[in-house]
Design a protein around this nucleic acid. Structure first.
Lengths: 207, 207, 207, 207
DNA sequence: TATGAATGAGGCTTCATTCAT
DNA sequence: AATGAATGAAGCCTCATTCAT
């Protein structure tokens, strides 16, 4: 249920009860079990939607913009990631939690396979962006899968880190700016002939 | 209890029960409550230990190695972080989860303050490394706090991301290699006059 | 539904759900309630069918084989009972359970009356077999209703007992052989001038 | 809990709830789980007690009364069985249900093993009574294990059958008389040189 | 006559926490 | 300071039953 996502977003996986969700969806608890085998599976289905949206965005970049210059490739990647983040920040955070947690072991094999497939696919699609850049001679001759992994790590790291600062220090949400800077640095770091120096000082908000 | 950390490491925050912990510590459940107000506080105390260890390592870098060249500063940072990771991988992962979760709201004010203080301190110590590099004219003229945040985001991102791949795809643990490459890229990205290109192709293991 | 009996046979009364039954019958759950007031009544209706079949078999013995010698009367009885068992072993076992359980109190009065009537009828028909034997002077001068009760007790006892051994010890199903021996002993026990001793050693399989 | 047995006796396995039991025992639901892993195990533990009592009675017969005449052996057996029945009729009935039901599959391996062992032991002890009779030349030369199985089948059959009549027809409880007659017939049936005919007409109450 | 989505009461079980000793 | 038996609230989930179509 699209609406039941709100409950997970508000309370997190373990604090949200099936009754909360049922109430929010204006259904009875039993009805939820017509559509989802159990709580974990309901939760994971929502995560799946994000992964799916993510893959769509990535595919779009790779397919429609082949002529892009490397610098723009990184920018496009950053923008796709940020859009995914904005699409549903809390579920994305929950998904990042899910991925590195024991909850995965309760899932039905089919659901787990879907998650695996989508994860792998998103990495590979990302890697293809780097492959192109390497082929152009613009990116350093690094293993593109490794670069894809790192860019993903940076994405999830920034998102979770800013979330953490938001909760602990009541800070504003600086995900956008932090991503901006992080990707600029990363882009410079993998370009073969980087420009002399950056002019932007866009990271003002980040503390 | 130092030894009860094993239980959280094995089972994760929500799956570990107070009785598990008491048994491992050869105490009774009731006794735990003499030392810790509740489960969350016990867990957070352990997280606190990691944060403390982390700060010690960072302080050591800043204090004892002032003459370091920027390239080595990054290397030292990377090594400190990897040591912290190796000190207790699972607790570190749990701590990263904790930081962006609702559990924080259950903590006693004092404990929460300690966590806040240590988090801020580790960021600031890290920032000082970058300040020195900027003063030397070796690092780009970026906001050092922002750089510290990003380097932390990369660290947590890499750790969680590799953990995720380990669980989902049964992959080996490539944290060390991935950190290596990520920091190399990051280092190149923030140096003012970077060398022409990298020679290392150290990312072989990352897939 | 005749076919839905399979579900009770497979899963037993409490494990079988109305949805299981509906699916097996290619009907919807709601439809079942057009024909049966509730689950217990559906189950009992099936038990009724066995009781009916049983009565038919017994009537047949009494009516068509009046000239039988006592020894053969017992044999005919044994065979009728074994046929009923083979007709649907699991439903018979379930019926034996039903008869001594609280489920009976949920039944509609009409259904309960049917069960009572059939139970009584089968006892009386059985008793008539013994009456004839007593009249012939071949069976001991015992209360025929009592003998009928005992023969029924032996039947149900053997069936449940063998089922128990089958489940607990993974033994083969020795109902036939055990019935054989039990009835032979019983027959000898109630004959007025029993033969010297048995020759058969047919109980080989029973352990 | 000795007292919680009342609830099972009143309501039967599936209708009795853990809360009922806890209330009867003046405990909280959670406390029950300190002593029993789950509902089935609690139930089975009670059944176990009956099986244990049964074995004690049987052992006593075999050990202390070696000089018994065969006719008395059967009588002693009948009396032991009736005592066990009287010790706790409803639990005995429940145990007979348990033995031929799927509930067995939920039990812990240890408990299941205990049940298996006790079941086997009671059969073997019973068989030894028959062995002695056969050795004396008083009982027919039948497989003693088979005879033991049959005597057990008769016991459980009579108990369940009378229970059934009690519930269905509101009859009095004639277990004692029915057992009496059934064992007399059985005894006559397996004796090598049976007396001419019985004198007792003790089955008056059985209908 | 048939459907099948929806219900919601109620069962089993867990586990953080307490308190008399 | 330590115990550990007991608690009881609360969660997840099942499934007999209903009712609008």
């Amino acid at each position: 249920m699209v609406a039941a996502k709100r409950v997970f977003s508000d309370k997190g996986l373990s604090k949200a009860t099936m009754e909360d969700i049922a109430k929010e969806a204006e259904l009875s608890p039993g009805t939820l079990y017509l559509y989802f085998k159990n709580k974990d599976e309901l939760f994971s289905s929502l995560s799946l939607r994000i992964l799916q949206y993510l893959n769509i965005r990535l595919d779009h970049i790779v397919n429609s913009e082949k002529e892009m210059r490397p610098r723009n490739r990184i920018t496009a990647l950053k923008e796709a990631m940020y859009d995914v983040y904005e699409f549903d920040p809390v579920m994305l955070i929950n998904m990042f939690h899910l991925q590195s947690s024991e909850t995965l072991k309760n899932l039905s094999p089919e659901l787990l396979d879907s998650i695996k497939a989508l994860s792998r696919s998103s990495i590979q699609t990302t890697a293809r962006l780097f492959e192109a850049g390497i082929a152009d001679g613009e990116f350093i001759d690094e293993h593109p899968i490794a670069l894809a992994g790192i860019v993903w790590a940076i994405f999830s790291g920034v998102v979770l880190w800013e979330e953490s600062k938001r909760i602990i220090n009541n800070e504003k949400n600086y995900v956008k700016q932090t991503l901006e800077v992080a990707f600029e640095i990363f882009g410079r770091g993998i370009r073969k002939k980087p420009e002399a120096g950056p002019k932007s000082k866009s990271a003002g908000g980040v503390s």
